[in-house]
């Protein structure tokens, strides 16, 4: 009786040791590989560099499209990428820079892009619309306001950084 129980526990012990050794081998093998694979996830977010895009005195109260290029380093591939924004001056003189990327499915919106809505941003893909301040028009496909660019003004020049989503819906 006791001998039998002893045998069972020996087999269990071997099974546990086997699992342990197997786990060690799997971990030793996979740990570097998994760390290697998830490296992009663990990279710190880029600071978001600012680029000069326009002179402040050229900006009117009517939204204008401005384009600029940035040097994008994508691992081993470096390229120039064109970015654009809709900028206008508010009544108090502050500047609003909106991302042209529609919050619905990522098409590009245009100011007064549809003759029926001359005072709104219009997305041609699914007729999404936004008010001048970037808020989405209720009842149209988008469910959030257009992203705003981080901005900085130095010596009369507007610098834009990254586009960040607005917190409120």
């Amino acid at each position: 009786m006791s001998e039998k129980r002893n045998q069972v526990s020996r087999r269990q012990f071997l099974n546990y040791t086997l699992t342990g050794v197997g786990g060690f081998m799997a971990a030793g093998m996979l740990a570097p590989m998994v760390r290697f694979a998830i490296d992009p996830v663990l990279q710190p977010q880029g600071k978001g560099e600012f680029t000069a895009v326009a002179q402040v005195d050229e900006i009117t109260s009517e939204p204008q499209r401005v384009d600029w290029t940035i040097d994008q380093v994508d691992a081993w591939y470096e390229s120039e990428v064109t970015k654009s924004a809709w900028v206008y001056k508010q009544e108090d003189g502050s500047i609003v820079a909106l991302s042209p990327v529609c919050k619905h499915l990522g098409c590009v919106v245009a100011w007064a892009g549809n003759d029926d809505y001359p005072d709104q941003f219009f997305c041609p893909c699914h007729d999404g619309r936004y008010y001048k301040d970037g808020e989405n028009v209720p009842g149209t496909p988008p469910n959030a306001a257009l992203d705003r660019f981080q901005q900085r003004i130095e010596d009369g020049t507007l610098y834009l950084g990254k586009a960040i989503p607005r917190e409120e819906a």
Binding site: R11, L14, N15, T17, L18, V21, M25
Partner: peptide, 8 residues
């Protein structure tokens, strides 16, 4: 598990 343990 006996032999496999040694192998591992």
């Amino acid at each position: 598990p006996n032999f496999l343990l040694k192998e591992w």
